[in-house]
Amino acid sequence: MGRVSTPDPSPQQIRRWQKYLADEIAEAELYQQLARRKTGEERQILLGLAAAEERHQQHWRNLLGTHADQLPSPSFHRVLLGWMAKIFGSVVALALAQRAESDSPYEKDRDATRGMAADEEIHEEVVRALAARGREKLAGGFRAAVFGANDGLVSNFALIMGMAGTGVGASVVLLSGIAGLLAGALSMAAGEFISVRSQRELLDATRPTQVTLRAAPDLDFDHNELVLVYRARGLSEEDAEHRALERLGVLDCDCTPQMSFNPEEVEDEYQAVGSAWTAAGSSFSFFAIGALIPILPYIFGAQGWWAAGVSAGLVSIALLCTGAVVGLLSGAPPLKRALRQLAIGLGAAVITYALGSVLDVTVD
């Protein structure tokens, strides 16, 4: 890549180019680090991304000349990416990298080439696809864990705020919270188990089988329904006839193999759904953890407004954390997701507290 700026850059340009170069070096190191943990196709894709970042580095080195020897630290986002990759692995790191690629400044910077800006747009889609693979593996257990924790936080916090609004004693609020924790955790676990088990049973009922292999030797060559089987699975009439002849041993071909039964595809589909027991266990555990947080002040003897205030503070922090995690892993802005979770949780608590206060006035 050649020069695209003036031969005598300003100090501001030099600082900006140095920052770009430092970030490109950090991104290349991230992809290389992730590639070392992968094999096969994913490894090659990550190494290809690293090579592209190295080409971008060379562009900024050409512009900087001797100024390329003294670089600032990478931006905080890039440092965070490397740290998250070491601790949490590729799923979290790739979700963060997706946002980093989408926020590239090259589109508006005249010192970057159009090719570099286009590269970054493509990189976002590549990273999005890689991150999607990891999200599928987390889908079952992660969904149950996140939903369980959030439901535990919001439902039990709303419950104890409603009870506190009625003016009952702290011991009654605590007992209500414990009852809500146990009932909610068991209900969530049972619901997740039934949901995932039912989904897996539906997949079992709809996936193709290998009955065509078992029945083929005994079929009448001139009158058989193999063609109908393959047409029902989505093949064209011509491909279905070829597949039927292959099963009968007449042809030695491999026509549209993606339409036939593939155990690996079914395994991947089940991986996205997750295990029923894993989902139930995750849902129970994380609902209980989430539901425990609002009642912690009452467990330790706090009462009145002090207990309610501490509970609200703890729940707010937890809601912000869970919302940010969901945002990070989904490639969405973590702050926006965190604030949304907080608004929903506090909104539910305010409503139930108001209803409890009205009930208290009615009783009096």
Rank of each mutant, 00 (worst) to 15 (best):
P7I: 04
D8M: 06
I14Y: 02
R15W: 02
K19E: 09
L21S: 04
L30C: 11
Q32K: 13
A35R: 02
R37W: 03
T39C: 00
R43G: 01
A51V: 01
A52E: 14
T66S: 13
D69R: 14
L81K: 06
K86D: 13
V92N: 06
L94A: 06
P105H: 12
D109A: 07
R114K: 11
M116L: 12
E120N: 10
E121L: 11
E125T: 11
L130T: 03
G141W: 11
A144T: 11
F147L: 15
L153R: 04
F157W: 03
F157K: 01
I160W: 07
A164R: 01
G165F: 10
T166C: 07
G167A: 08
V168Y: 03
L174D: 10
I178F: 09
A179K: 08
L181R: 03
A185P: 04
S187R: 06
A190W: 09
G191E: 12
V196D: 11
V196L: 05
Q199D: 12
R200W: 00
E201W: 11
L202K: 11
P208I: 13
P208K: 08
T209S: 13
L213P: 00
A216Q: 08
F221A: 14
F221K: 13
E225S: 15
L228T: 13
Y230V: 03
A232E: 05
A232I: 09
H242D: 07
R243C: 14
R247G: 05
D254Q: 13
M259K: 04
F261C: 06
S275M: 12
W277R: 13
G281R: 13
G281P: 05
S282T: 11
S285W: 00
F286G: 00
A291W: 08
A291C: 04
L292M: 12
I293K: 02
L296K: 09
G301H: 07
V310K: 02
A318W: 01
C321F: 14
T322H: 02
A324H: 09
G327I: 11
G327M: 07
L329F: 09
A332V: 04
G347C: 12
A348L: 06
V350R: 11
I351S: 07
V358T: 10
V358S: 10
